[in-house]
């Protein structure tokens, strides 16, 4: 919770009051995302990169590939690792130091969406079976924090992987090649405060949120990862409703990625 800072009771009352009238603090509908923009190939030193903005939230994802050993239980597969940095640049509440539990949770939820949707074809990332495989590092750097890092980070990671290359030339393994990927997962996050559930929470809404729900969907609208967070709870109907709302949002967000 420390990541979200402290919120005055006044602000909480204000947001709850607005919600009762069916309004949000920034004028959106309950089921409306902020404007999303994706900028690709922005970092020359990265094997792939993308800068994503959702409203005022801005994150940069960079992909690096290195050669390493496979896991003993999957000797014929490359590996992937996802990390999220919350540098003090992005928010007055972020502090330097090792990753906080908040950062680790975001990274792991994003990782699960990518891994479980089999977005990266890890079986095509073998250099020498059982000995050498490619390790895909997905590093997500938050640049400006105004809520919903789960969706912004996931979208940035997906867009960066989409245009990534395998740096064969640097390792004298022939020509560079595109990173083999399939269809990306789309992450969709909701928060609940009072009786209201809103999609794509901004910072104010995250600060008053009692419960959070993230779902990652594949291109068929099937569910590949979910995460419920914070100390509040959802009813089963609320969860089902969230997923059905997410399926509609995911279609629209997917179009942005496929542009």
């Amino acid at each position: 919770m420390d990541m979200f800072g402290k919120i005055s009771a006044v602000k909480k009352d204000y947001l709850l009051g607005l919600a009762k009238e069916g309004k949000r603090v920034d004028g959106r509908g309950f089921d409306e995302y902020r404007e999303i923009t994706i900028e690709r190939n922005v970092i020359k030193n990265a094997e792939g990169s993308a800068k994503v903005k959702i409203g005022n939230t801005m994150v940069m994802a960079g992909i690096k590939l290195e050669i390493g050993e496979p896991y003993p239980d999957s000797p014929e597969e490359g590996t992937m690792t996802t990390s999220v940095e919350l540098p003090p640049l992005a928010s007055p509440e972020f502090e330097p130091g090792p990753p906080t539990p908040d950062a680790i949770e975001i990274a792991r939820v994003i990782d699960r969406g990518i891994r479980e949707s089999e977005y990266i074809h890890l079986d095509k990332l073998v250099v020498e079976p059982g000995e050498k495989v490619w390790i895909v590092f997905i590093d997500i750097h938050v640049l400006d924090y105004d809520g919903n890092l789960f969706d912004a980070g996931s979208l940035a990671a997906s867009a960066a992987l989409q245009n990534a290359i395998i740096p064969n030339e640097r390792h004298e393994l022939g020509d560079n090649a595109p990173l083999p990927v399939g269809k990306p997962p789309i992450s969709c996050t909701f928060v609940k405060f009072g009786d209201s559930i809103v999609v794509d929470p901004n910072l104010d809404e995250e600060q008053v949120a009692e419960a959070r729900f993230t779902v990652a969907l594949d291109e068929n609208g099937d569910i590949r990862a979910t995460q419920k967070g914070l100390a509040g709870s959802f009813t089963l109907d609320e969860i089902k409703n969230n997923i059905n709302r997410a399926r509609i949002h995911a279609k629209n967000i997917r179009k942005l990625l496929e542009e």
């Binding site: 970092i43 030193n45 990265a46 990169s49 960079g62 992909i63 290195e66």
Partner: peptide, 9 residues
Amino acid sequence: MASFSVQER
């Protein structure tokens, strides 16, 4: 330095 800002991560 961001981990992806240089050639070797």
